Structures are given as structure tokens and as C-alpha cells.
Simulated scan of single mutants.
Amino acid sequence: MKKRIKEIIVVEGKDDISAVKAAVDAEVFQVNGHAVRKNQSIEKLKTAYENKGLIILTDADYAGEEIRKYLNKHFPNAKNAYVPRKNSTKNEDIGVENAKVEDIILALEKARCNFEVKENNIFTNDILFEYGLIAKENSFELREKLGNELGIGYSNGKQLLSKLNKYNISFEEFEMAYNKIKNITD
């Protein structure tokens, strides 16, 4: 059974997500390399940073280090995990996606990540249905507005359920955000 990590792991690209998820059970956020400076990644990561913490796991190359520096400027208390260049190189391509499972786990352990023992799932599909966030005509719009209000971005129903629980969003915080968007929508 994979170890479950509390913090959100921040990586550069989609292949990195696959490599990390093969190693551990964790929420992984992709910043799309240097595009992190142009897109909304920083805003989306703020809630995760404040509620769960971040672990930055970028490639062991110049671009990866530049992205790491940029993220550390915005999130000074983020933990940093490093897979050494020699353990993340394949055919002269350096990247987390090339690392072995055990090397990724070791890097995360050395970053002093927090392993979750028990999952505390406050939110369920029944709650999402009750609030009209799934299986209703305007569910898409409500999820989009709620995601923006909570600072977790748009999600489909399954992703929303996962984010609400994994980012440790309280029911009170959820209801306040929901009531705010409902007043705007109504």
C-alpha cells in the first residue's frame, strides 16, 4: 500500500504527476514549467499552501531550479524535495518523470513530508448533490464559482469532492463560500 502524503506536491508537468502517483498517494499539482509565471497557478496554490502545505519537486536541471526559486518566493514555508540528477536522467533527459519510485519516495522522506495516517473525509457525494454541485442543471456553474471562491479552481464533481477533503476545507468555510456564490447566482 502506498504511503499517503498530507501536503500537495508541486511538479512541472503531467509526466511528473504520473511518476509521483506511482510512488505515493498524494494530491499533485502541475505548474506547466515556466508557464507558472503566466498562468493562475500561484493563486490556485495559495489555498493548498495555507491548508495543507506544499512540497516542491522540480527537475534537477536549470529550468527546474528556476521554477523552484520562483515558487519558493511565493511560498517561503514550502518544503523542497530533490531527486538527484543521476537518479532522474534517462537518455540525457533530466526529469522527475525518469526517477524510480524508490528515489521519489526517498526525496519526499528527506523533505520531511507528513504522512497521513487517517483520512478525514467530511464531504461526500450526498453533500455535493444536496448543494446542487452535481447532477443538476447548473452544477457546472456552481462548481466553477465555488472553486473560485475557495481558491481551488474549477473541478468536475469527483475532483471537487477530492479537493474539499484533501485541502482540509472545513464545512463552515464551504458553507460560507457556497452562501456567498448562491447570493450572487440567485
Rank of each mutant, 00 (worst) to 15 (best):
E116S: 14
L108G: 06
K44I: 11
T89F: 09
I127F: 14
D126K: 04
N138Y: 12
K136H: 14
N72D: 02
K44Y: 14
A135Y: 02
E50P: 01
G151L: 01
E172L: 14
Y178C: 04
S41H: 13
H74L: 01
A81Q: 12
S88F: 07
N179R: 13
Y62F: 13
K158T: 14
E119T: 01
L160E: 11
G64L: 12
I105P: 01
A78D: 01
E144H: 05
N138T: 11
K145Y: 13
N51D: 01
F174R: 05
Y49L: 00
N156Q: 04
E65F: 10
F123A: 10
N72T: 10
A177M: 08
L128R: 13
A78R: 03
P84Y: 11
A60Q: 15
E109I: 11
A111T: 04
A177L: 05
F174N: 08
Y167C: 03
K46F: 00
K180Y: 07
A177I: 08
E43K: 11
L164M: 07
T47E: 07
N168I: 03
A135E: 08
Y49E: 03
K158C: 05
S162H: 15
A78Y: 03
M176F: 14
D126I: 02
I42H: 09
D59R: 12
I127L: 15
N168E: 14
P76M: 02
R143C: 03
A107G: 10
K90C: 05
A107F: 12
G53W: 07
L150C: 07
L146Q: 06
L142K: 15
T47R: 07
V101A: 02
G153Y: 03
G153R: 11
E116I: 15
G95L: 06
N183E: 14
